[in-house]
């Protein structure tokens, strides 16, 4: 060993990585800082206050944003739940049910929502609902989101399922467990981390969506992104920054949660 090189080290990579982090965080942190600005002018920083947070919760527009948050959450929970169930069933069929007719086409179909640019999905969905005369509302957003979320729920679940060997279930069946029992008692618990990350991913994707929602939302139904977009177009006011900061904190909580699930999972694996 004359020349001991560190194969994991490339000169400059660390600097680029730090630059990447800096670029990702600088705008977010600045908005966070300015959300505590007391001044109504967004550019001059006066003194620190929670004034705009009060405004978000109790101000004139509080009702609007509360309703939008409520809509966003219910739609995201609904869409994530339904798409996770659909995706779980589909991944069992794809990976645990042998060969069947149409299997070859099923994977492209499942990932189609990922391949179609969002604006195209939005237009197609709008035309579809208008052609069949279905009034836009909560339901149209929910349906569009379910479709859109399926691949996001499917990919983590299928990835997890692939890493679980089917010998456990086969052993259970050799011991006369019914298929339902082997699913419920063996596959499902092992699959749970995948299902949870699928659910969380679908949830966040639904919560995040602007383009499709903007096309298919019905009268009086505003989600958080559409409400924020409308407000931000008229000027990035301190209250928008306060909302942004709150959303940022929510995201941090979510990421932490998903990491906690991940931790539990890897601990279980070790045991």
């Amino acid at each position: 060993m004359s020349r001991r090189t560190n194969f994991r080290h490339f000169p400059g990579f660390m600097a680029l990585g730090l630059l990447c982090m800096f670029l990702l965080y600088a705008p977010l942190i600045i908005v966070m800082v300015y959300s505590f600005n007391d001044s109504i002018s967004v550019t001059r920083f006066d003194s620190v206050s929670l004034r705009w947070y009060r405004d978000v919760f109790f101000g004139l527009e509080a009702g609007k944003f509360r309703q939008a948050t409520f809509n966003s959450l219910t739609i995201a929970i609904g869409a994530a739940t339904v798409s996770t169930v659909i995706a779980t069933c589909a991944s069992i069929a794809m990976l645990r049910a042998g060969r069947f007719r149409g299997k070859l086409l099923s994977f492209p179909l499942l990932s189609l929502p990922l391949m179609v640019p969002e604006i195209v999905t939005a237009v197609a969905t709008l035309i579809f609902f208008s052609a069949i005369g279905f009034a836009a509302g909560h339901a149209t957003i929910l349906v569009a989101h379910i479709v859109f979320c399926i691949p996001f729920a499917y990919l983590p679940i299928a990835a997890r399922m692939q890493s679980i060997e089917s010998v456990y279930e086969q052993a259970a069946q050799d011991l006369y467990a019914s298929r339902w029992d082997s699913f419920r008692l063996i596959l499902l618990p092992l699959l749970m981390p995948g299902i949870i990350s699928g659910f969380l991913l679908a949830f966040i994707i639904s919560l995040d969506d602007f383009i499709i929602t903007n096309f298919v939302k019905g009268a009086g139904v505003e989600t958080l992104p559409t409400a924020i977009f409308g407000a931000a177009k008229q000027g990035i006011k301190p209250n928008i920054m306060a909302i942004s900061t709150l959303l940022l904190l929510t995201s941090i909580v979510f990421v932490s949660l998903s990491y906690m699930f991940g931790r539990v999972e890897s601990n279980n694996k070790r045991e």
Binding site: V85, I86, A87, C89, A90, I92, A93, M94, R96, A97, G98, R99, F100, G102, K103, S106, L109, L110, L112, P113, I146, V147, I150, S166, E169, Q170, Q173, R179, S182, F183
Partner: peptide, 19 residues
């Protein structure tokens, strides 16, 4: 040999229909 052989259509149906 899949464990849930024969159930494939029932399991795929929701995804197929929705998409």
């Amino acid at each position: 040999r899949g464990i849930y052989e024969g159930l494939a259509y029932y399991l795929m149906a929701p995804a197929w229909v929705t998409l």
